[in-house]
Design a protein around this nucleic acid. Structure first.
Length: 641
RNA sequence: GCCCGGGUAGCUCAGUGGUAGAGCAGCCGCCUUGUAAGCGGCCGGUCGGGGGUUCGAAUCCCUUCCCGGGCUCCA
């Protein structure tokens, strides 16, 4: 008698010839109905898969991550089938499930535009109604090649596969080279929606053919699909490009140039506050602030290695006689030059230079995106020159700054990615020994700090490995914000040195670090994180005084003055609108405090406080309000959103 | 850079070969308001730029600029 072991520890008899679906059936009718695939000894398999006995058996439903993945993968197949039916002669390439959905890259015979999506979706529903059984077929390499003799993409994929290990999934007339597994029939798909069309290069390489990629989302139930679409709406409402315009923070103009954000007074106020805050933290942590301009002689970048490894991201040179200048894409060479302007003893170290520098990077036009990808960006960049013995302590110091700042902004959930080089990639400066030391130092520092991290190859800077901080915003989206990098290479190249205790000259180690990264990008993340409702300390306008009628204007101005005196940013809404409209407009501007003043307030020397997001009213003496607001600003509290 | 989509008033958008529109904003006036839009009037456009087709172009074609979605999460 053979048995399988169930997740709850029970054992269940299996008979010869049993398939996963039979076993599921025996566990429970309901469960069998919800089953998408099954797991045998932890491996996800089709419900069709034979169960021999002796395995650990688990039914997988659409609610589990694996089940969802399968559901989406099968939905991608249904879409591919629909497209082949509607556009005969199209060639399939790859169509994997992804987070929240799936895509399929297809060389379409004809052209698909957004207007065609409902039609394809309709055909997919039809295919689902046909309830075609989906089954897996093992084919030989030769058979697979024969099936795809007209499809160079699939042939290329088949080439990399082992003969005897190739599976084909079929549903009706449709077949697809696929490792599976899949749901048992097209009738078992959940709720889906096609979202958008995009171009995608075959294998992501711009030298290859451009394919048509169609993105879709799929969920077990209609309800979950709706909930997901609602989340997308929410993200759209928080879009920093939309809020940036509505809240008069920044704009772009083709007259100035693509990718160069122009900050309006309110936007600049926020930028300034952000910068002042980080500046204050850095000063407290022993950093010196420096300034190194915008233009740099190209020769410096030749020495540092930027010209060789970073050329594509730099603006073309400006030629002045013999000299070629570049717009500064990075601060490190400038800071090293500054370091070299005088002799250093080991007693001076560490030297910590910080700069809020505007850098210019030539991003490809198609990569530009609101404030998150720009061509002029302001970095809160700092470089720490230290001895090798000091690396650990300096790393810990940088980490402390990052933790404090991210916490203040309300990013409490973040992970660390250790970005390493890909040793086979020529974009990194070759120096085995120094890379080895840098990687060792970085790992040790992270371990000492007790930080969990994940190593990713090929993501390092050209001169050294990085610890990148990926923070989650309120919508659960992840952003790379802070970074700490260890560099054994550039200081030697630029001839940085110090005299050690031994009287000899040594090359310092360079730590690069940025807390908020680019101010532009960080601001974009903040806008979306806060949905435009900045905490009081960051709000460009902290309070608006709203007079009920014109006769209260004088009092409103006096209130404004009193609040301005204690450092609050306050405006008076003296427009000819009704009070209701003033409330509406200023609420839409997401002003933290609306202070209504009418006859009662004038008489009592109070303001009627209406807090953002709260319809309640509270009458406070002007001085009391001022004190509590000042206290709130000083706390930099991001909780009252 | 490349593929797809788009660009009409400051903003959001309608208008698909036949006289350029709406709402909001702005300006002017009336109202003097008690917690999310008071009322009326006026102004506002090289229909992104350039070229072409046509009796006639916002609309069709070419070109250029800008914006948006995307460009390995690998059968």
């Amino acid at each position: 008698m053979t048995v399988v072991k169930l997740p709850d520890g029970r054992e269940l008899e299996v008979e010869p010839g049993d398939r996963a679906r039979d076993v599921a059936e025996r566990i429970g009718k309901r469960l069998a109905r919800d089953a998408v695939v099954a797991k045998l000894d932890g491996e996800v398999v089709d419900l069709d898969a034979p169960v021999e006995g002796g395995e650990e058996f688990e039914v997988v439903t659409g609610d589990s991550p694996e089940g969802l993945y399968v559901l989406r993968h099968s939905t991608a197949h249904a879409m591919a089938q629909a497209i082949l039916e509607l556009y005969p002669g199209s060639k399939l390439t790859i169509g994997p499930p992804i987070e929240n959905g799936f895509y399929y890259d297809i060389e379409v015979n004809g052209r698909i535009t957004d207007e065609d999506l409902p039609r394809i979706e309709e055909r997919m529903r039809e295919i689902s109604e046909r309830d075609l059984p989906i089954y897996c077929e093992r084919v030989s390499k030769a058979e697979a090649e024969e099936l795809y003799r007209d499809n160079p993409y699939k042939l290329e994929l088949i080439e990399d596969l082992e003969d005897g290990d190739i599976t084909m999934y079929r549903q009706g007339d449709f077949f697809d080279l696929c490792r599976g597994p899949h749901v048992p029939s097209t009738g078992r798909l959940g709720a889906f929606k096609l979202q958008n069309i995009a171009g995608a290069y075959w294998r992501g390489d711009e030298k290859n053919t451009m394919l048509t990629r169609i993105y879709g989302t799929a969920w077990p139930t209609e309800k979950q699909l709706k909930a997901y679409l609602r989340r997308l709406e929410e993200a759209k409402a928080r879009d920093h490009r939309k809020l940036g315009r509505e809240l008069e923070l920044f704009t772009f103009s083709p007259d100035v140039g693509a990718g160069v954000p122009l900050f309006m007074p309110k936007g600049e106020t926020v930028r300034h506050l952000m910068e002042a805050y980080v500046r204050e933290v850095q000063t407290r942590h022993g950093y010196d602030h420096v300034w190194t301009g915008h233009l740099v002689n190209e020769k410096l970048y030749e020495k540092s290695g930027h010209l060789e490894h970073y050329l594509d991201s730099m603006y073309p040179p400006m030629v002045d006689g013999e000299t070629r200048y570049r717009l500064k894409p990075m601060n490190c060479p400038s800071h090293m030059t500054l370091f070299n302007s005088r002799a250093h003893s080991y007693r001076d170290l560490p030297v910590r230079y910080a700069e809020f520098a505007t850098l210019y990077r030539y991003e490809k036009s198609g990569e530009l995106n609101g404030l998150t990808r720009v061509r002029s960006l302001t970095q809160d960049d700092a470089h720490v020159f230290c001895t090798e013995d000091q690396v650990q302590e300096e790393f810990a110091g940088a980490l402390e700054i990052i933790r404090e700042v991210l916490d203040t902004y309300g990013f409490t959930d973040y992970r660390v990615q250790l970005s390493m080089r890909d040793p086979d990639d020529t974009k990194y400066i070759a120096d085995e020994e120094k890379w080895g030391r840098a990687e060792r130092e970085l790992r040790e520092a992270l371990d000492t700090a007790g930080i969990q991290y994940e190593e990713v190859s090929g993501e390092a800077a050209f001169y050294g490995p990085k610890a990148d901080f990926m923070a989650k915003d309120v919508l659960g989206r992840e952003w790379q914000l802070s970074t700490i990098q260890v560099d054994f290479i550039q200081p030697a190249r630029l001839g940085c040195e110090y005299v050690g205790e031994d009287g000899e000259t040594h090359t310092p180690v360079l730590l690069h670090r940025a807390v908020t990264g680019s101010t532009e990008r960080f601001l974009a993340v903040l806008i979306e994180h806060y949905a435009g409702s900045f905490p009081l300390w960051l709000a460009p306008v902290q309070a608006v005084v709203i007079p009920v009628a014109d006769r209260h204007l004088d009092y409103a101005r006096r209130v404004q003055e009193e609040l301005s005196e204690v450092g609050l940013r306050v405006e008076v809404d003296g427009s000819q609108n009704s009070m209701q409209k003033k409330i509406r407009e200023n609420a839409r501007q997401k002003v933290p405090y609306l202070l209504i003043v009418g006859d009662r307030e004038v008489q009592d020397g109070t303001v009627n406080v209406r807090r953002r997001g709260d319809k309640g009213q509270e009458a406070l003496k002007v001085g009391d309000f001022a004190r509590s607001a000042v206290k709130e600003v000083a706390s930099r509290d991001s909780r009252f959103l």
